[in-house]
Design a protein around this nucleic acid. Structure first.
Lengths: 106, 106
DNA sequence: CCTGATTACTTCACCTGTTGGAGTAATACT
DNA sequence: AGTATTACTCCAACAGGTGAAGTAATCAGG
């Protein structure tokens, strides 16, 4: 199991990547990450909600109240154009980091 | 140019990877990183020496005084068996992180 | 209509690793 | 003696992740 700490700096990007495929909310995004990685990565709640706050503050996502099925009403998030731009920058950075680290750890 | 911050958590591993190919010292390791990455990554002095301290404290590297050609005498570093083991763990973690992030940023 | 379960967050204090700026130490060169 | 070069060293600040604990809203069962 990977720690969020090893993913530091890319948690925000993961969230944006998921939102780029459609609006969603906290719990669901957490589950989606877990599912897509086949349990290799489970983002912690505190890490996830801290990410939402940062992303909101920077204008990369917008929040709006969602429907309720059972329990507390959800807050849905939508990626903004600025968020898409930021994601593109992060993806590019990721490719560079990957290349650089691979030069040493192989 | 990549920031050390984007490399956070892997700077220690880079240093160990370089030391695994032979003992070396601060300045030289810094230059080696820059050279191998074709100027894509320049680790900052403070980051590098902070890494040495951490690695020493954890018993992953040993320090010993080296020869002098010009200027202050160098401190050489040698990787320890524990350091090699740690590097192996980090390399494995890196592969997982790479796989996970790639699931989202592609 | 009260209780407990479920879903969905929220707060807080702490920790680790990176940063910029400035300073120090030892030696060689002129 | 003074300057350049090499090689660190210290420090306070900051960002992002962490664990533990707490809160809030809704629904289902008795």
């Amino acid at each position: 199991m990977i720690s969020s700490d090893a993913m530091r700096g890319y948690n925000d990007a993961l969230v944006l990547a998921i939102l780029q495929q459609g609006d969603s909310y906290g719990y669901k995004i957490g589950k989606e990450i877990r599912k897509r990685t086949h349990d290799q990565y489970m983002i912690r709640e505190t890490t996830l909600y801290a990410a939402f706050n940062r992303l909101s503050k920077n204008g990369y996502i917008d929040a709006y109240p969602g429907d309720v099925t059972n329990g507390k009403p959800r807050t849905y998030y939508r990626i903004t154009p600025r968020g898409r731009a930021f994601l593109a920058v992060k993806a590019e950075e990721w490719h560079q980091v990957k290349h650089v680290v691979d030069l040493f750890l192989n």
